[in-house]
Design a binder for these strands. Structure first.
Lengths: 245, 245
DNA sequence: CGGCCTGGATTCGGATCCAAAATCTGCTAC
DNA sequence: GTAGCAGATTTTGGATCCGAATCCAGGCCG
């Protein structure tokens, strides 16, 4: 585990930080719905602390863009319009491109082996997600799939060794859609999942071939393609991205 | 003035937000030295409020990366190593490249006229900065020059109309070095200032010519060149970027 | 003489308290 | 029946208070 603090410098030690992490987790996992109001009193009860650290945690999440804030009205889980969502992916596409190209220059054999492992995990999760056994928990499967997906890119981040940019990329990644989404799946979506996996393999190959420009292009296209996947799922699940806000 | 809130959504209304802005201003203008500890009690006295909104403000700045934080030890104005500083500029280079290329596709005649105005202001300030009249306040001159510099890019941001990415770019820009730096100047630095101005004009021309790829390249190179300028000034002023942290 | 311990002064993190803003509810007037 | 208003209730923002961690200075021991 990356253990170390979350953004740079900050971290554990104070309740405010632990709670920020906990709330973030709740948002990302979809436990807290986008748009829902975050009552300080209620959170304070949930986490058994006073409102003071709660508010500090919310301030932090607000600065990171995960929650929105209106004076005297409160915080709510942020919702993104299609345009904003697209921007978040465009941003990530640029950053992933940069990071991946730098990683291609630096990767050692060990790094490549680690990437291989991450890719295998991701591949396994993708198969599990496509299998759709009756009675499996698609929600947690999706969360696991996303984690494996992130895990793959995290290896690349580590190799590139650009902590500040990595932080920004991760933030854009969190902001992506807020909650995890999942769909029963159909042929279109299946194809997109498979394409996603193929792209990972291609990126992996570009790193192995020490091709910075190739890696950049592939990573860039990969992220934009993920936007496509997400949008398709959201439509299929009857929750299309709002055109305006 | 841009009036509207700072990041997205947040803004005026609460003291915590006003104070965050005030402290940020103090950091960016160099009033608060990098590395200096921010005592809550003292800030509370300075702004005539209790420590509660002060702490919320600091939390926010911490999430934005302007101040660093250690549990039970306090907040301090963040210092960046050379590597981190370089990363901040690399990040900005990518984002400016993206934003400028999008702006090149969208710019209207009015936009180009506005850009022309911003360029003129910047050009004027550059001349003033190079003039070095005896008795002029180089500190505030530099702050003004930076503002004009930012103003030029702000026009482009507005034209590109990518608020989320704009926000990220502005954040990277704030984080750049913390405080403004200024030097009496010599031939090398003069030449760099002039190069900077030439680059602005080139970017302007690329926008006028509706050349997205050209604009991207120029903007990218421009930001990296700014890093060079900054580093040169810092060395000249006897405060070179720390190699490690 | 120098490193280490101890007790007091600071400073921080969090809980509690209070005033102001917003929201809700039920009544009134049209 | 509905628009609008007044008071009650909820919820937020900020101030104050208290326990705990850190820092600092002086003394002790090797």
């Amino acid at each position: 585990m990356s253990s170390a603090a979350h953004p740079l410098g900050e971290g554990i030690g104070t309740k405010a930080d632990e709670i920020a992490l906990a709330i973030e987790e709740a948002i990302v996992s979809g436990e807290l719905e986008p748009g829902s109001v975050l009552r300080q009193e209620q959170l304070s009860a949930t986490y058994s602390v006073s409102r003071t650290p709660i508010r500090e945690a919310l301030r932090r999440l607000s600065a990171l863009g995960l929650v929105s804030f209106e004076a005297n009205r409160g915080f709510r889980v942020r919702t993104l319009s299609r345009q904003e969502m697209y921007e978040a992916f465009l941003l990530r596409a640029e950053l992933e491109g940069l990071i991946t190209s730098v990683a291609a220059e630096k990767a050692t054999q060990d790094d490549l082996a680690e990437l291989e492992q991450a890719e295998k995990r991701f591949s396994r999760l993708t198969r599990a997600l496509r299998a759709r056994e009756p009675g499996d928990d698609r929600r947690s499967l999706t969360v696991d799939w996303m984690r494996a997906n992130h895990g793959f890119h995290d290896v690349i981040y580590r190799v590139a060794n650009l902590p500040l940019i990595e932080q920004t990329a991760k933030n854009a990644r969190r902001t992506f859609s807020g909650p995890a989404v999942w769909a029963p799946g159909d042929e279109t979506i299946d194809e997109l999942y498979l394409a996603n996996e193929r792209q990972h393999r291609a990126i992996q190959a570009a790193l192995a071939a020490r091709s910075p420009e190739g890696a950049r292009e592939l990573a860039h296209a990969h992220v934009l393609s993920s936007f496509n996947l997400l949008e398709t799922i959201l439509e299929q699940v009857g929750r299309p991205l709002p055109r305006s806000r």
